[in-house]
Simulated scan of single mutants.
Amino acid sequence: MRKRSWGFIVGGMLVALLLAGVVSNYASAHPDGLDSSLRAGCTFDADDEITGGSCPAQQEKEHEIGGPLADYGIAGLDNDFLSTGLSGVLGVLLTFAVAGGAFWLVRRRGSAEAPDAAGSRDAAQPSTAATGQG
């Protein structure tokens, strides 16, 4: 891989880590489109608890499995800013590791098959000397 490609990858990683680790803490706390549609028809108090009405959000419950990165934070970490930032950084690193590994495997498999495909293509076409052309 050329140095220019590595620079692009490293630069992209740094931008993604900065966005996930710092900027994500300044994202809107208001519900996104899906949450808003699920909350339509209900009324909420100052603590964002449902106080009346009828909406699909009333059926909401905690995830059965949970997990260390549930709810955009790290379980057990009391500092919200740090919890959100670290969960974003871990998410970026995990995504990069999985995607990088997949691309590495595909590239490795593709480069191993490429010489065989080129060799069989050449063998299938008649040479110019054998056909009398040239």
Results as ranks from 00 to 15, higher is better:
Ala97Pro: 00
Thr131Tyr: 09
Gly134Lys: 14
Ala27Ile: 01
Ser24Thr: 06
Ile74His: 10
Leu38Gln: 12
Ala16Met: 14
Ala130Leu: 11
Cys42Val: 06
Pro68Asp: 08
Ala27Tyr: 11
Thr128Asp: 07
Ala27Pro: 01
Gln59Met: 10
Glu62Lys: 13
Gly52Ser: 12
Ala70Met: 07
Ala114Pro: 00
Arg39Gln: 09
Gly33Leu: 14
Ala75His: 08
Leu86Met: 13
Gly12Val: 06
Val98Gln: 09
His63Ser: 03
Gly110Lys: 14
Gly119Glu: 13
Gly52Arg: 13
Asp48Pro: 00
Gly66Gln: 04
Ala99Val: 14
Leu94Gln: 02
Glu113Cys: 02
Ala27Trp: 14
Ala16Pro: 00
Gly52Glu: 09
Trp104Pro: 00
Gly76Ala: 10
Gly53Arg: 14
Pro31Tyr: 13
Arg2Pro: 03
Pro115His: 15
Trp6Gly: 00
Gly85Leu: 07
Ser37Phe: 14
Ala16Arg: 10
Leu69Gln: 02
Val15Thr: 05
Tyr26Gln: 03
Asp45Lys: 04
Leu69Trp: 09
Leu19Asp: 01
Gly88Thr: 05
Ser54Thr: 12
Glu113Gln: 12
Gly66Ile: 03
Ser24Pro: 00
Pro68Met: 15
Lys61His: 12
Gly119Arg: 15
Ala117Leu: 14
Leu17Glu: 05
Gly91Tyr: 10
Gly41Ile: 09
Ser5Leu: 15
Tyr26Val: 03
Ser87Glu: 11
His30Leu: 09
Val89Phe: 11
Ala117Arg: 15
Leu38Cys: 02
Ala130Val: 11
Ala20Trp: 15
Arg2Ala: 04
Gly7Ile: 11
Leu14Ala: 13
Ala99Ser: 06
Arg4Tyr: 08
Ala27Cys: 02
